[in-house]
Computed example of a mutant assay.
Amino acid sequence: MTIDLDELMKVRAHFDAEVREGAQADAPQGHVERAGGVVRHVAPALGWNGVLWSDLDEGTADAEIAAQVAFFAGRGCPEFEWKLYDYDRPADLGDRLRAAGFVPEPPETLMVGLVSELAKLPVEPPEGITLRVVTDEAGVDLMMRVHAGAFGRERPRLREQLLGKLREEPETIAAVLAMAGDTPVSAARMEMRPGLAFAGLWGGGTIPEWRGRGIYRLLVAHRARLAAELGIAYLQVDASDDSRPILERLGFGVLGVTVPYMWTAAAS
């Protein structure tokens, strides 16, 4: 069952309040703070740094952008992200970020699904596929093999972030592999915080030769069942163009479009 438009707007407001403005740290040594007109995530070493939410207008945006650049540059961060949503204000915030030296990455569609409905999806693996829950370094390394094959790039920072979560906050992550014998062919994870209504689906990727067999759908269904057991109401995805049509068929609705704007010290 797809969420209707009126309900989607209520869900979006809930998402903004809980996941963005009311964000919690997503790394063991990270923290979230409100500074001026933004909420930002600050983390050491290989952790994720960035702006999650903003309350700006034409008169305050440029100064706030400059303040965040000065803050993260002053911490010695090699890069940080301003996570922009297409309904953020002012309407030309993306243009202002580009003028300040940020570079946009490909847009993604912000989608949400009802766990109560998604948990009903069948979870029978395609022929030749078994699921493996990731709990240790060996499992994370297999996930990184899948990511390299599915997305065409290595992710050393992500590897360290996942290992940190599994060691120090295992209750905030559920990671899974689809295996063809001893070969990992797809991987995905769910990140959540106890007591919150939303959990995020991340990293869903399948190596090219195994696509089109229902594995992505299987991993969504598997995580939805886990979310239902934990009392989570909604699953949220920043969907690529490849993932969006699959998720729409599964009943996910669109809340908006998000674009990661990246600032790097080397380019400044």
Rank of each mutant, 00 (worst) to 15 (best):
T264P: 02
D6E: 15
R157S: 07
V254P: 00
K120Y: 08
R244A: 10
F198N: 01
P260I: 01
L196F: 13
A199W: 10
L163C: 07
L201R: 00
L93N: 00
L84Y: 01
W263S: 03
P90Q: 05
V38F: 06
M262L: 14
G203S: 06
P170Q: 10
P107D: 06
V176I: 14
R155S: 02
S116M: 12
F15M: 08
A199D: 07
T130F: 03
I3H: 01
D57G: 12
P107Y: 05
T258S: 12
G139V: 04
I3K: 01
G200D: 08
D26L: 11
E21L: 10
L196A: 14
A119I: 08
R211I: 01
G200C: 07
R167I: 07
M9P: 00
G181Y: 02
G128K: 06
M262H: 06
K83F: 06
H147Q: 13
V115T: 09
P170S: 12
G256T: 05
S186T: 04
M143T: 04
V220W: 02
G256M: 06
T264R: 14
P156C: 07
M143E: 05
R244V: 04
V103P: 01
L46S: 07
R89C: 03
A67C: 11
E64N: 13
R155Y: 08
P106R: 13
V103C: 10
P122C: 09
P245G: 03
P126A: 10
T130L: 05
G59L: 15
D26R: 12
V134R: 01
P28A: 11
H147G: 02
G139W: 03
A174K: 04
A199I: 10
E248N: 03
A197H: 14
E137M: 09
G47F: 07
R34P: 01
A13F: 10
E160V: 09
E209W: 04
R34V: 14
R40S: 04
R75I: 15
P194N: 15
Q29M: 15
H147W: 09
R193W: 14
R249E: 02
L118R: 03
R12G: 06
G205S: 05
R98L: 10
E21Q: 13
E160C: 05
